[in-house]
């Protein structure tokens, strides 16, 4: 039981790294809190569902389309909203209020458009039967979702640490004003980071029916809570911390389900409270400003 819980937790944690990654990238670069993140994940889930239901598109193919489409969707949203937010005196606080409103709007529109019933894609689409890993049986769909998540994390890492625009992005993360003073097109870098963040949320949505059982317009709130727990554990603004936070969250959740199942839904809140009280900067907090 313990081995299965830990292994499942690591696999689940990889997926939740992906869920939190986009949220953390946006906060790291722009210092805005996207409370609509969970609803973007939900839109990704419905995009994948409809692509599968209407044209039979495989979720792996859908993920490429969703990545591109959501990135393109993110750009106009950025230019419409974020520069005005950043020009405000209290942009972080304003972003919480603004994106809370956006979240409500997205959920309402999705409910009207898609209805309230649960939707999902058959798990067999990603592979039949369980996959035996280190002596434990895991759903193939979980392993595939985790693998895609790891690939996305690796690509974000390469973008941030092995590309010129990534270097500029990290410069903006460290100090937006100094980056601006040194001639970096902060707006353009931020727009790109915002688009990538939205695209990552959409990608996480594609695999959510496999990891979370089904998708509904109401799923955004729970996803948000888990995503915030993940990035706060690691550290706000640091993608490497997101990986650590995701794995800790996943393993802790599975251990809770195994030994204290009735209390498992308290876990995100407990982790959030514990980290915020003991180490408010997150486990990798010291490195945030030096990214």
């Amino acid at each position: 039981m313990l081995a299965h819980a830990i292994l499942s937790g690591l696999v689940f944690g990889c997926y939740f790294t992906l869920v939190g990654l986009g949220l953390n990238l946006i906060f790291g670069v722009m210092r805005i809190v996207n409370l609509a993140h969970g609803d973007v994940v939900m839109l990704g889930a419905f995009a994948a569902f409809w692509l599968f239901a209407l044209v039979g598109l495989h979720p792996l193919m859908s993920s490429v389309i969703v990545l591109a489409a959501f990135a393109l969707l993110g750009l106009p949203v950025y230019y419409l909203v974020v520069p005005r937010l950043l020009a405000a005196r209290d942009s972080e606080m304003l972003s919480i209020i603004l994106f809370f409103g956006v979240q409500q709007i997205i959920e309402a529109i999705a409910t009207i458009a898609f209805g309230t019933s649960e939707r999902s894609i058959p798990g067999r689409v990603l592979g039949r039967g369980p996959l035996h890993l280190l002596g434990q049986a895991l759903p193939v769909a979980w392993v595939v979702s985790a693998a895609v998540s790891l690939l996305a994390v690796a690509l974000v890492y390469l973008y941030l640490y092995r590309s010129r625009v990534g270097t500029l992005t990290r410069a903006v993360m460290v100090n937006r004003d100094e980056a601006l003073a040194s001639g970096i097109d902060v707006n353009r870098v931020s727009a790109l980071a915002f688009a990538i963040g939205v695209a990552l949320a959409g990608l996480a949505g594609v695999f959510s029916p496999f990891m979370l059982g089904s998708a509904t317009p109401a799923m955004g709130g729970d996803v948000n809570l888990a995503a915030f727990a993940v990035i706060v554990i690691g550290s706000l603004g640091d993608p490497r911390g997101t990986m650590l936070g995701g794995l800790i969250y996943g393993v802790a959740l599975m251990l809770m389900q195994t030994y204290m199942s009735a209390w498992a839904n308290l876990l995100p809140n407990l982790l959030l409270i514990a980290v915020l009280l003991v180490r408010p900067t997150g486990l990798l907090g010291r490195q945030v400003r030096r990214a």
Binding site: M1, S8, T258, S261
Partner: peptide, 15 residues
């Protein structure tokens, strides 16, 4: 018992 918000049961099924 599990919370009503539970959305994955793989570990519970193993247990």
């Amino acid at each position: 018992g599990v919370p009503t918000s539970t959305s994955n049961y793989a570990v519970l099924i193993d247990n």
